[in-house]
């Protein structure tokens, strides 16, 4: 029975390998690109999924650290609130202080607070309080203020200084006239949001749609206003590789005729650079120089 299972497993494994090979062989360039896009689009969710299902159940270290800090701070606050508030009045720490001196005497602390110890021979409070007198207190008599003098006294004004010498304020220095910053250029009528910063003045706009421009008759930059897979003849693809363009993965393909196509997505748009007879390095330079235009970019 075990031998049978082994043979069966081997046959199934070979069948699976055969299917896998067939799958890989039938993957055209466009299939590959679409699958890669799907993988990139969902990689974050799937990585989260993997982490969720393979991580330990203990919380992350930073969460534990935050929890520990919160406990410590909470404990300190609790401790502080449970302590009695400090009195503003200083009391003698030792009763012998006032016992040695028979009469209370005030001393001044270095910080200026006057310290008066309680005298042990002080009169009881009950003896200090005296009964309120019942005899009426006479109201104060009205005494008119003296009448003003008939003539106002002359108060001489202050004599002005002999030679006032005003000091003129310094004249403001002339500031340089504002110089407008060099604005990125692109052909008039460019409808896209991105454009190569390399030799921007040398690009010519293609008549169709205002989203394709050509440089040096050899480099064609196209911007699509949506994510798309630019049409290409997949069978002619000889080599492909992924390169990073300004931190974004881009697919660089070279067909059998030596034509390069570079495609990448930015901000919900697909950008494409095509070079029928150009150099790969120049193509990558142009791609890396692509910048986002200002909102009113078409006004340049």
């Amino acid at each position: 029975m075990r031998e049978q299972n082994d043979v069966l497993e081997q046959a199934l494994a070979e069948l699976a390998a055969q299917e896998t090979r067939a799958l890989e062989e039938q993957m055209t360039f466009s299939d590959m690109q679409m699958a890669k896009k799907m993988q990139l689009a969902h990689s974050k969710e799937n990585r989260t999924l993997i982490r969720k299902h393979t991580r330990t159940l203990r919380p992350a270290p930073f969460l534990r650290a935050a929890a520990a800090i919160a406990v410590v701070v909470g404990g300190l606050m609790l401790l502080r609130s449970s302590m009695p508030e400090k009195a503003d009045v200083l009391t003698p720490t030792s009763p012998s202080f006032s016992m040695q001196t028979n009469s209370p005497s005030s001393t001044q602390e270095p910080n200026g607070v006057i310290f008066t110890p309680i005298s042990p021979t002080a009169t009881p409070i009950a003896n200090i309080i005296k009964p309120i007198s019942t005899t009426p207190i006479p109201l104060p008599t009205y005494i008119p203020s003296p009448a003003p003098t008939a003539e106002p006294t002359h108060v001489p004004l202050a004599t002005p200084t002999a030679t006032p010498s005003p000091v003129p304020t310094l004249a403001p220095l002339a500031t340089a006239a504002p110089v407008p910053l060099a604005a990125p250029q692109h052909p008039d009528g460019w409808q896209g949001n991105y454009f190569p910063g390399k030799n921007p003045g040398d690009w010519l706009l293609k008549p169709s749609g205002g989203m394709t421009a050509v440089y040096d008759d050899n480099y064609e930059f196209t911007e699509y206003d949506h994510i798309t897979t630019p049409l290409s003849d997949a069978r002619d693809i000889a080599e492909y590789e992924y390169v990073m363009i300004n931190g974004v993965p881009a697919l660089l393909t070279e067909d059998r005729a030596g034509q390069f196509t570079l495609t990448w997505d930015v901000d919900g748009r697909t950008l494409s650079l095509f070079s029928p007879d150009g150099e790969k390095e120049t193509l990558l330079d142009i791609a890396n120089s692509v910048i986002k235009l200002p909102e009113n970019g078409s006004d340049f």
């Binding site: 799958l23 699958a35 799937n46 990585r47």
Partner: peptide, 18 residues
């Protein structure tokens, strides 16, 4: 698992998409 996903993710999506 992350390596598996990195290495074979495209193939997985392609197989699923078929």
């Amino acid at each position: 698992m992350e390596k598996i996903y990195t290495d074979y993710g495209t193939l997985m999506f392609h197989q699923a998409r078929l």
